[in-house]
Lab assay of single mutants.
Amino acid sequence: DKHFVVALYDYTAMNDRDLQMLKGEKLQVLKGTGDWWLARSLVTGREGYVPSNFVARVE
């Protein structure tokens, strides 16, 4: 069951495990537990961690 989110804010990666994203960017959540979610950008195809409070679910 795939679940998708949209970035509510720009996020600048703090290290090489984070995923940089721009407000409005759509992401697929690969692992969504805790404060940091592993996601893949549908724009760039890159994977990394994003802060869960920076994204909102897309139905």
Score class of each variant (00 low, 15 high):
Gly32Glu: 15
Ala7Phe: 01
Leu19Thr: 01
Asp35Arg: 12
Glu25Arg: 00
Ala13Leu: 01
Met14Val: 15
Ser41Leu: 02
Thr33Lys: 13
Val6Asn: 05
Tyr49Ile: 06
Asn15Tyr: 07
Gly24His: 01
Arg46Glu: 12
Val58His: 11
Lys23Ala: 09
Thr12Ser: 13
Phe4Ala: 05
Ser52Ala: 14
Ala13Ile: 05
Leu30Gly: 01
Pro51Asp: 03
Trp36Tyr: 13
Tyr49Arg: 09
Phe54Pro: 05
Val58Ser: 11
Lys2Arg: 09
Gln20Thr: 15
Phe4Thr: 13
Leu27Asn: 03
Leu30Ala: 02
Lys31Met: 11
Val58Gln: 09
Thr33Leu: 04
Asn53Lys: 14
Leu42Ile: 07
Leu30Glu: 05
Met21Ile: 11
Leu30Thr: 03
Leu30Pro: 00
Gln28Ala: 08
Phe54Trp: 10
Glu47Tyr: 07
Ser52Leu: 03
Glu59Phe: 07
Tyr11Leu: 05
Glu47Cys: 09
Glu59Arg: 13
Asn15Arg: 11
Thr44Asn: 07
Glu59Trp: 06
Val6Phe: 10
Lys26Arg: 13
Val6Met: 10
Leu42Tyr: 04
Ala56Arg: 14
Ala56Trp: 06
Gln28Ile: 13
His3Leu: 12
Asn15Thr: 11
Tyr9Met: 11
Val50Ile: 12
Met21Gly: 00
Gly24Phe: 00
Ser52Ile: 04
Tyr49Leu: 12
Asp1Arg: 11
Val29Cys: 05
Asn53Leu: 03
Asn15Glu: 09
Thr44Asp: 09
Asp18Asn: 12
Leu22Trp: 07
Asp10Gly: 05
Lys23Glu: 07
Met14Ile: 14
Asp1Met: 09
Asp16Ser: 12
Leu42Ser: 06
Lys31Val: 11
Lys31Gly: 09
Ala56Met: 10
His3Phe: 15
Trp37Leu: 15
Gln20Asp: 10
Arg57Ile: 06
Arg40Lys: 10
Thr12Arg: 12
Lys31Pro: 00
Ala13Met: 06
Asp1Ala: 08
Arg46Gln: 14
Leu27Ser: 01
Met14Gly: 14
Lys23Arg: 10
Arg40Thr: 00
Leu8Met: 10
Ala7Tyr: 01
Lys23Ser: 06
Glu59Ala: 09
Leu8Lys: 13
Arg57His: 11
Glu59Ser: 12
Asn53Cys: 08
Asp35Ala: 09
Lys23Cys: 06
Asn53Phe: 03
Val29Leu: 10
Gly48Cys: 00
Leu22Cys: 15
Gly45Lys: 10
Leu19Ser: 01
Ala7Val: 01
Met14Asp: 12
Gly34Asn: 06
Glu59Pro: 12
Asp10Cys: 02
Thr44Ser: 11
Lys23Gly: 02
Asp1Thr: 10
Pro51Gly: 01
Tyr11Phe: 11
Lys23Thr: 05
Asp18Phe: 11
Val55Cys: 10
Asp1Gln: 07
Val50Ala: 08
Gln20Ser: 15
Leu30Arg: 02
Ala7Lys: 01
Gly24Pro: 00
Val43Asp: 14
Val55Met: 00
Ala13Asn: 01
Gly24Thr: 07
Pro51Ile: 00
Gly48Ile: 04
Asn53Thr: 13
Ala56Ser: 15
Tyr11Ala: 03
Ser41Ala: 00
Ala56Thr: 14
Leu38His: 09
Phe54Gln: 13
Val6Glu: 14
Asp35Thr: 12
Lys31Cys: 12
Asp10Gln: 03
Thr12Tyr: 10
Met21Thr: 06
Asp18Cys: 11
Ser41Asn: 11
Phe4Asp: 08
Arg46Tyr: 06
Val29Glu: 02
Leu8Gln: 10
Leu19Val: 02
Asp16Leu: 07
Lys2Val: 01
Leu42Cys: 14
Met14Arg: 15
Phe4Asn: 06
Gly34Arg: 04
Val58Lys: 06
Leu38Asn: 02
Val55Ile: 08
Thr33Asp: 15
Trp37Ile: 15
Thr12Lys: 15
Thr44Lys: 04
Tyr49Met: 10
Gln28Cys: 08
Lys31Ser: 14
Lys23Leu: 00
Val50Gly: 05
Thr33Cys: 08
Trp36Val: 10
Val55Gln: 00
Val43Met: 12
Arg17Phe: 12
Leu19Cys: 01
Ser41Arg: 02
Val5Ala: 15
Val29Asn: 03
Asp35Lys: 11
Asn53Ala: 10
Leu38Val: 06
Ser41Glu: 01
His3Val: 12
Trp36Arg: 15
Ala56Lys: 15
Val50Asp: 09
Gly45Met: 07
Phe54Ala: 15
Gly24Val: 01
Glu47Gly: 01
Val5Ile: 06
Leu8Cys: 02
Gln20Met: 10
Asp18Ser: 11
Ser52His: 11
Trp36His: 10
Gly32Leu: 07
Phe4Trp: 08
Lys26Thr: 11
Gln20Trp: 06
Val43Pro: 03
Ala39Asp: 00
Asp16Gln: 10
Asp18Tyr: 13
Ala7His: 04
Val55Ala: 01
Tyr49Thr: 05
Tyr49Pro: 03
Lys26Phe: 08
Leu42Asn: 07
Val5Tyr: 09
Thr33Pro: 04
